[in-house]
């Protein structure tokens, strides 16, 4: 049987804040990723991952484990210290996209990726209408037909269950859940092959959380977009992801099918995490 090719994969991705020293270069098991000698922070260390088409890969871990930094690195909000990452649709997966020019990075962000941040202030322009926020992604990808872009914005707002008459309203007058839904509309506006979601339900009440998660699930089923979901909430990961990666101190300590991770955790940290949930 032919094995599916991942849509995105990374090898040895490292993000380090500080120069590092001989001690921390040789000791990988640093507490909270911080070197006790030179105080360098190893936010992400030697991380490998693969996301397959139509799959949801969950990344779980405590605060400061490096999961958001990994996502920000893949979306170019953070510079990687070293490592490689590839997209199957970009140069047939032969070019490490972490080292490309700023123009190419913009191209990748605009055409091949969507990002939903935990804080909507990072993903939306609060002084622009929600319609213009969604259209921004289309314009960035070369859209110059205003009528079509308005129609697409209306369609997407309808899809995320925001009344379409609120097209001209600024997201700052929306509730937190609505702002997240506008962010999701913007991220999927040009149907990218991969969607990155960083703690999208944090800070929302339970009923709104459920709505947002249902929406993400339905989008994934409908459009077949591969997703990378970061969360510190194991319940979200259990509900959403097909496979899960557990991070601790910037490193991946366990990886596998979500059911397997939750039912039969191997690493001590994962066992603590799962037992705290149950």
């Amino acid at each position: 049987m032919e094995r599916k090719k991942p849509v995105m994969w990374g090898r040895h991705i490292t993000v380090r804040f500080g120069e590092g020293c001989d001690y921390c270069r040789t000791h990988t098991n640093l507490e909270k990723g911080r070197c006790p000698k030179c105080h360098t922070i190893w936010a992400v260390r030697d991380v490998d991952f693969q996301v397959y088409p139509g799959e949801i890969l969950g990344i779980v871990g405590e605060s400061g484990s490096g999961k958001s930094t990994l996502l920000k690195t893949l979306y170019f909000d953070q510079q990687a210290t070293s490592g490689e990452a590839y997209l199957s649709l970009y140069h047939e997966g032969k070019e490490n996209f972490l080292n490309v020019s700023s123009q190419q990075k913009r191209y990748l962000r605009n055409h091949m990726m969507g990002m939903v941040y935990q804080n909507p202030m990072l993903g939306l322009r609060m002084k622009l209408s929600s319609g213009a926020n969604i259209a921004e992604k289309l314009i960035a990808a070369g859209g110059r037909d205003a009528g079509r872009m308005i129609d697409r914005s209306i369609e997407l707002l309808h899809h995320v269950e925001i009344p379409t008459e609120r097209l001209r309203d600024q997201p700052r007058v929306f509730s937190g859940g609505m702002q997240q839904r506008v962010q999701i509309s913007k991220a999927i506006a040009n149907t990218p092959p991969i969607l990155l979601l960083d703690e999208v339900t944090t800070g929302l009440d339970l009923s709104v959380q459920a709505k947002v998660l249902d929406l993400i699930r339905s989008i994934q089923k409908e459009l077949g977009i591969a997703m990378l979901i970061v969360s510190h909430d194991l319940a979200v990961i259990r509900m959403m992801s097909d496979r899960t990666m557990v991070m601790l101190g910037g490193r991946v300590v366990e990886e596998g099918l979500t059911d397997q991770i939750l039912e039969d955790p191997l690493h001590e940290y994962t066992q603590t995490l799962v037992s705290s949930l149950l």
Partner: peptide, 26 residues
């Protein structure tokens, strides 16, 4: 300056789109 170097003018187009959407003229 970096945006000019990259010929990245999305922001200007978005402002024109916002004007069209909210005031009827770009």
């Amino acid at each position: 300056r970096q945006l000019h170097a990259d010929a990245e003018y999305t922001g200007i187009w978005v402002n024109l789109f916002e004007q069209l959407l909210t005031r009827g003229s770009a």
